[in-house]
């Protein structure tokens, strides 16, 4: 297994496992994070996985760069030779989504760009398993990939001022759910009734890097039964569509 490190701060190094985005790296980085947690324990203050990297923050009261690398190197090298020893299969998270123009104002546009019906676009979005590449932008915001090429769409040139929590979007070949209401420039296609981030849960973030995600289309009644909300719609067309001419 290839790896190298770069010094990125007084108490941080960034481990690199590849030079371009590759689904195979997700599990490599996840295994590396897990072996380093076991090896270094309390000496590690943070381990932040991203597409090709793992940022490590260490405690300068216990280590300097030399002592850290001395223990980190054998741990990572053993990982490369042992291969897929005790690696647990990644967790699969099921995410119900109400795909509808009322909660996903760009759904029709995404479908028409691909020259397919809305139903077909939903089928293609739910038809594959996504990898959590990284968490960032906001607490619990998971970058998921890759969406089918025909559904890929660039970010909006003008981000919306307010995207409600739970809204599902597409940007380029990635898809993600806004965990909290925030400004956003992704193409919005639906909404989940699940709470993506809750500080009071044992695991505050529903999604973590290394997991797999399956989206499942649900009806309006299932959505509302799961406490899904249709209020606080920020987009102009919301009121007109709500009169009920969908499908």
């Amino acid at each position: 297994m290839f790896w190298r490190y770069e010094v990125t701060g007084v108490d941080t190094i960034t481990l690199h496992f590849g030079e371009k985005i590759d689904v195979a790296l997700v599990s490599t980085i996840n295994r590396a994070a897990s072996v380093l947690h076991n090896t270094l324990g309390e000496r590690l203050l943070d381990a932040v996985p991203s597409y090709t990297t793992l940022l490590l923050r260490y405690d300068l009261l216990q280590d300097d760069l030399a002592s850290l690398v001395a223990d980190l190197k054998p741990a990572l090298d053993s990982l490369s030779t042992a291969g897929n020893e005790s690696a647990k299969p990644p967790e699969v998270v099921d995410v119900p989504v109400f795909y509808d123009p009322r909660v996903g104002p760009d759904l029709e546009n995404i479908a028409s760009r691909a020259n397919i019906s809305v139903e077909e676009a939903i089928k293609r979005h739910t038809g594959r398993t996504y990898h959590v590449f990284a968490i960032g932008f906001a607490p619990g915001f998971a970058y998921l990939g890759q969406v089918a090429d025909e559904l890929a769409a660039p970010r909006l040139s003008t981000p919306r001022k307010k995207v409600p929590a739970g809204t599902l979007g597409i940007a380029d070949t990635q898809t993600a759910i806004y965990p909290i209401s925030s400004p956003g420039g992704w193409n919005l296609i639906g909404r989940t009734p699940l709470t993506l981030f809750d500080p009071d849960r044992t695991r505050p973030s529903l999604l973590e890097a290394g997991q797999l995600v399956r989206f499942r289309a649900i009806s309006e009644s299932e959505y509302t039964a799961l406490s899904g909300k249709l209020d606080d719609l920020p987009w102009e067309t919301a009121a007109a569509n709500a009169k009920g001419d969908q499908k």
Binding site: G9, V10, Y51, L54, Y143
Partner: peptide, 27 residues
């Protein structure tokens, strides 16, 4: 490619004016 950001990182966006990332920076 996006990666974890260290405290104090000096990032340079397209306009060339550096930004020093502090305690409440994005991750």
């Amino acid at each position: 490619i996006s990666e974890g950001i260290s405290l104090g990182a000096i990032q340079v966006p397209a306009d060339g004016q550096p930004i020093i990332l502090l305690n409440d920076r994005q991750t």
